[in-house]
Design a protein around this nucleic acid. Structure first.
Length: 849
RNA sequence: GGGCGGUUAGCUCAGCUGGUUAGAGCACCUGCUUUACACGCAGGGGGUCGCCGGUUCGAAUCCGGCACCGCCCACCA
C-alpha cells in the first residue's frame, strides 16, 4: 500500500482491484464442504439473469448479503455464499434472436439445435459479465463454485423433480385457457402478466332472437371474438331477461344459433346486463363455458390471425378482423353503440405485448399438495420473513394458489422429459426404449428450475458433502416482487424434495426508487448505474450509501448517502493516519486501560464495546440502515470529534499507543462488513493486526471494559466544552483567544485541564472583572475575558438566552402546576420535570447575576 | 373492487411498545490553514410531524374519518 504520510485520501480505483485479488487469493470466499448446516453459514444468491447487467437492486442486495456473510465469517463461522446465474429462458432467447435477425437470419432458419448452440456461445461470451460486476462491489461470493441453472447436474435435478411430481399426479397436461404472449410466442404464467390501463372502444351489438321476437344487446371491446361465441348469458335474477332464458339468438355474421343461459357471474347493472360468452378467448367466459359445457371455439390462432372457424374473416390479423366485423355489423344495422372505454388489460411482463388469452395444450402443476406445508413452515417459524408484513402476503397468496402453467414454447431452457408416440406419453429420466418416440418440444418455465436453486446448486439429488454442509441455507435476501414468483416456490420445492426448508430467514429488502420517486428502469431512463457510482465514489461509499438507505420502506436513491459513505471512508483513513503517524515502538496488543488510565482512554474503550455489541445485534436483526448510521456516528461523533482531539495533548507513550491501536483495529473490524476495502487497506498498517481483516475476528463486546464512570465524566466534559464554545461564538471571541477562567464544578474537577484545552480556557489567567458565568454539570465555569469579547454581541446573546430560558421555565412551571399531571403521571417523570426546572432556574440566575 | 405502506426541516430519511427543548446527512448562515482529514473543524438558523375529530394529565407516536402518493392482489363484458 502507498505510504500513509503522503496520502490524504483513500484511492478506491487503485486499491479495490488489488484488495479484491488478495481476498480471492486468501481462499476465504470458499468454504470447504465439511460438517452439517449448523456448522456453516450459507446464503444462496438470487441468481442474476445471464442477460443482466448489475443494477441498483443487485447492488443493494449484494451489499446486504455481503454484510451478513462477512460478519459471520469474521465471527468464526465458515461461510458459503453460493453464486450462479439463471438461464432466463425468454430474455436470453429474445436477445439471441435479435442478433440473428440483425444477421439476416432467424431462429426458424437455423433450426433448434443450431439455435441452442448459438445461445450457449452467447452465454460463453457475455453470460459472465454480471458476475464480474458483482466483484466490483467486493461481494465475497464463492467464485470457485459458480453454478448455472442449465448445467448438466442442474438439468438432472430438474428432470428428477419433474418426474417425481408427475408420478405424484401434481404435473399434468391439459387443454386450458392460458396467457398467450404473442411477443415470445409462448404461454406465460399468471405471475408474468401485468395489468395496464388502456382505452379501447366498447361496442354494443344486437343479437336478434331466433324466433324474430326481438333482440338482446351485448357489449364487448373485442367484437372479433364474437365469431367464437357459444352462448349469451344473463343473471338468473334479472327480471328483464327471465323470459328469455333458454331461448336462442342468431349470432350475427354467422349461421350459428346460441342459447341464452343464466349465470350468477353476470352483473345485471353493467351495460345491458347481457354478456356474450366466448370461452376460447376470455378467462371468465372460459369458466362459465366449462360450468355450462359450452363449445370452445378458437377463432384467433397462436399467430394472432383468425382461424378457419372465423369463416370469411379467416387469415386476417385480429385487429383487421375487428374493423371488418364492426363494419359488417354496422352495415346490417346491428351496431347499437360505441364509446371509448378505459380499462385494465393484461400485458406480458417480458415482451410488453398485450396478452391474447388462448386455449392451448399445456403442462400444468397443481400446487394444492405443496402449498400447505409451505404455509405451515412460515406459521410455525421454521422460516421467518422480515419484515413480518411480508409474511402475510406470502401466506395469503399460498392460500389461494392456482395451477401453474409450467410449459413454455421456447427453445432455450429445460426441455420437458416427456416423449410421445401416437397416443402414448412417456415421462422419465431417460428417453424410452423402442422407436418412434418424439420428445416434447416445450421447455419449462424458468422459475421451475429457479425453485430448486438452494439445493440443486449443491448437487441434489446426490447426497453430496456440499448439500450436507450448506443445506438448509441461512438467509435468503430478495426484493419483494419475487416473493411469489420465486421464494414461495423454493419453500414448496425445498420441503417436498429435501424434507427441509431451504432457508430459515427471508429478508425482503426495500426498493430503491429513482430520485424523482419513479421506478428505476432502463426503459424509463430512470436507472442509475451502480458501476458509475462505484467509479465515482468507490465501492465502500456505494455500499454504505445503499445500506443506509435500506431501512424498512421503499426509498428514493440519495447520492448524499453515498457521499456520506465516501466521507466516512476518508475520515477513517485520516483518523488512522493520525494514529499511525504518531505511534512508535513496540505496540502492545491489549488496550492499556484501568483505574489510573486517562479518562478518555477508558471512555473510548467503553464506547467501543457498545458499538460492537449494537452493530452485531443490528446485523443479526437485518437493521442495516441503523447499523450503518451507528458506525458513522461512532467514528465521527466519538472517535474523531472527541477521542482523537482529547488525545492530542498527550505524548504517544506505550499505553496510549496500545490503546489507540486497539481502538483503531476494533473500529476497522466492526466497520469491515460495511466498507470492506478501506478497512482492509488500513488494517495492513495497524500495529497488532495480523493477516487479512476479512479473516480477522469480529470484535465481541467485553462487559468488563464498559466503564460507566468514564462515560459520565466525558459526557459532562463534552457538555461543558460545547457550552463554552457556544458562549464564545455568541460573544464573538476570536477562536484562537485563550480566556481566563475558573472551573467550579466537582464533576469536572478531575478533567479540568482537558476542558480548558478543548475550550481554550487559561486556568492560570483567571482574574480581573468577572465577564460571565456558564452553568455546566456540577457547577459553573467563570470567565474573565477582559477585552477579548464583543460586549454588544455578548449582551444580545444573553438577552436571547434569557428569553429562551424563561420560556422553558414557564413551560416547566405550567406542567408542574397542572394538578392532573402531578397526580397521574409517573412519579419519576414528575421528579425529573422538577429537576429540570431547578436546573433552568439556576441557569437563569447565573445569567442574570 | 380488496389489501398493504407512505405523508416529519429546502431535499432524502430516522424517530412511532405515548412522557426532556422532534433528530441525522445534504443544502443554508457565521467563523476557522486549531500538531489526521477543507470529502475538514467549531458555532448557528430552519419543522403548528398531510387534514379533521377522538382517547389521555400528556399524541409525530394510540383510535376513527378524509385527502393525496406508491406498491401488491383481483374475472366486471
Amino acid at each position: 500500500m502507498p505510504d500513509l504520510a503522503d496520502q490524504k485520501r483513500f484511492d478506491p480505483a487503485e486499491a479495490e482491484p488489488r484488495i479484491m485479488a488478495s481476498w480471492v487469493d486468501s481462499g476465504l470466499f470458499h468454504a470447504p464442504a465439511q460438517g452439517s448446516a449448523v456448522d456453516n453459514y450459507s446464503i444462496a444468491i438470487p441468481p442474476p439473469n445471464i442477460t443482466g447487467a448489475l443494477h441498483m437492486g443487485h447492488a443493494l442486495n449484494g451489499s446486504i448479503q455481503d454484510v451478513l456473510i462477512r460478519y459471520k465469517r469474521m465471527s468464526g463461522i465458515p461461510t458459503e455464499w453460493i453464486l450462479g446465474t439463471d438461464h432466463a429462458g425468454i430474455a436470453t432467447q429474445a436477445k439471441v434472436e435479435e442478433r440473428l435477425v440483425e444477421e439476416g437470419s432467424s431462429r426458424e432458419a437455423i433450426g433448434r439445435d443450431a439455435f441452442v448452440e448459438r445461445v450457449w456461445q452467447w452465454r460463453e461470451q457475455f453470460g459472465g459479465t454480471i458476475i464480474e460486476q458483482f466483484g466490483r462491489l467486493g461481494a465475497s461470493c464463492d467464485y470457485e463454485r459458480e453454478r448455472f441453472t442449465l448445467d448438466d447436474d442442474y438439468e438432472r435435478a430438474v428432470r428428477q423433480v419433474f418426474c417425481d411430481l408427475y408420478e405424484d399426479g401434481c404435473i399434468y397436461r391439459d387443454q386450458y385457457l392460458v396467457n398467450w404472449d404473442p411477443g415470445s410466442q409462448s404461454a406465460i404464467s399468471d405471475l408474468e402478466v401485468e395489468e395496464r390501463e388502456v382505452t379501447d372502444t366498447l361496442f354494443e351489438i344486437a343479437y336478434p332472437l331466433a324466433d324474430g321476437s326481438g333482440e338482446i344487446v351485448v357489449a364487448t371491446v373485442r367484437p372479433e371474438t364474437m365469431l367464437g361465441d357459444s352462448a349469451v348469458a344473463v343473471n338468473p335474477a334479472d327480471q328483464r331477461y327471465s323470459e328469455l332464458i333458454g331461448k336462442r339468438v342468431k349470432l350475427p355474421l354467422t349461421e350459428r344459433e346460441l342459447e341464452i343461459i343464466a349465470d350468477d357471474y353476470v352483473k345485471p347493472d353493467f351495460g345491458s346486463g347481457a354478456l356474450k360468452i366466448t370461452p376460447a378467448h376470455d378467462p371468465n367466459d372460459f369458466e362459465i363455458g366449462r360450468r355450462h359445457g359450452l363449445e370452445e371455439l378458437t377463432v384467433i390462432g397462436e399467430d394472432g390471425r383468425m382461424t378457419e372457424l372465423a369463416g370469411r374473416f379467416a387469415g386476417l390479423k385480429a385487429a383487421e378482423a375487428q374493423q371488418q366485423v364492426v363494419a359488417a355489423l354496422r352495415e346490417q344495422g346491428l351496431l347499437r353503440g360505441e364509446q371509448p372505454y378505459l380499462h385494465s388489460v393484461p400485458f406480458s411482463h417480458r415482451s410488453g405485448e398485450r396478452i391474447e388469452p388462448l386455449i392451448s395444450l399445456q403442462w400444468f402443476m397443481n400446487m394444492e399438495q405443496l402449498a400447505p406445508p409451505a404455509i405451515e413452515a412460515v406459521n410455525d417459524g421454521r422460516v421467518s420473513i422480515h419484515p413480518p408484513s411480508q409474511a402475510k402476503r406470502y401466506t395469503d397468496w399460498l392460500e389461494q394458489i392456482r395451477p401453474w402453467c409450467i410449459s413454455r414454447q421456447l427453445w432455450w431452457g429445460h426441455r420437458l422429459p416427456v416423449w410421445y408416440r401416437g397416443d402414448e406419453t412417456w415421462v422419465g429420466m431417460e428417453e424410452p426404449q423402442g422407436t418412434g418416440w418424439v420428445r416434447e418440444e416445450d421447455v419449462l418455465d424458468t422459475w421451475f428450475s429457479s425453485a430448486l436453486w438452494p439445493f440443486a446448486t449443491l448437487g441434489w439429488p446426490d447426497k453430496t458433502a456440499e448439500l450436507q454442509a450448506f443445506y438448509p441455507t441461512n438467509v435468503l435476501s430478495t426484493a419483494r416482487d419475487i416473493l411469489f414468483l420465486w421464494v414461495a416456490r423454493m419453500v414448496m420445492m425445498g420441503l417436498r424434495f429435501t424434507g427441509d426448508v431451504p432457508f430459515s430467514d427471508v429478508y425482503v429488502h426495500p426498493v430503491i426508487q429513482a430520485p424523482d420517486g419513479r421506478r428505476m428502469s432502463k426503459s424509463l431512463g430512470t436507472g442509475i448505474d451502480p458501476l458509475t457510482e462505484i467509479d465515482e465514489h468507490g465501492a465502500d461509499a456505494v455500499r454504505f450509501g445503499l445500506l443506509a438507505m435500506a431501512s424498512t420502506q421503499d426509498v428514493r436513491y440519495s447520492r448524499e448517502r453515498v457521499e456520506q459513505g465516501q466521507a466516512l471512508a476518508t475520515k477513517l483513513f485520516n483518523a488512522s493516519r493520525f494514529v499511525l503517524l504518531n505511534v512508535s515502538g513496540e505496540v502492545a496488543l491489549e488496550p492499556a486501560v484501568g483505574e489510573g488510565s486517562p479518562i478518555e482512554d477508558r471512555w473510548i474503550v467503553s464506547r467501543l464495546q457498545q458499538v460492537a455489541e449494537q452493530t452485531a445485534q443490528q446485523i443479526e436483526q437485518f437493521e442495516f440502515s441503523k447499523a450503518a448510521f451507528g458506525l458513522y456516528d461512532f467514528v465521527y461523533g466519538e472517535l474523531c470529534d472527541w477521542y482523537l482531539e482529547l488525545v492530542k495533548g498527550r505524548e504517544f507513550d506505550a499505553a496510549l499507543s496500545a490503546t489507540a491501536c486497539y481502538v483503531l483495529r476494533s473500529t476497522l473490524a466492526i466497520a469491515h462488513p460495511f466498507i470492506p476495502f478501506v478497512t482492509e487497506e488500513l488494517w495492513a498498517s495497524v500495529p497488532g493486526a495480523e493477516g487479512l481483516l476479512i479473516g480477522a475476528p469480529y470484535p465481541i463486546a467485553q462487559p468488563s471494559l464498559v466503564d460507566r464512570e468514564a462515560e459520565q465524566r466525558i459526557a459532562d466534559l463534552i457538555g461543558a466544552v460545547t457550552a463554552v464554545r457556544s458562549w464564545r461564538s455568541g460573544a464573538n471571541v476570536k477562536p484562537g483567544a485563550q480566556l481566563g477562567a475558573r472551573i467550579d464544578s466537582a464533576a469536572l474537577a478531575a478533567d479540568a485541564p482537558l476542558v480548558a484545552r478543548l475550550a481554550r480556557l487559561d486556568l492560570g489567567a483567571f482574574g480581573g472583572e468577572l465577564t460571565d458565568t456558564i452553568v455546566v454539570a456540577g457547577g459553573a465555569i467563570e470567565i474573565t475575558a477582559g477585552d477579548a469579547i464583543d460586549v454588544d454581541a455578548q449582551q444580545r446573546e444573553r438577552t436571547q438566552r434569557r428569553a429562551a430560558l424563561e420560556q422553558e421555565i414557564a413551560r416547566a412551571e405550567g406542567k408542574l402546576g397542572n394538578q392532573s399531571f402531578v397526580a397521574k403521571a409517573p412519579p419519576e417523570l414528575v421528579a425529573g420535570e422538577q429537576q429540570k426546572l431547578d436546573r433552568l432556574r439556576e441557569q437563569l440566575a447565573a445569567l442574570s447575576g
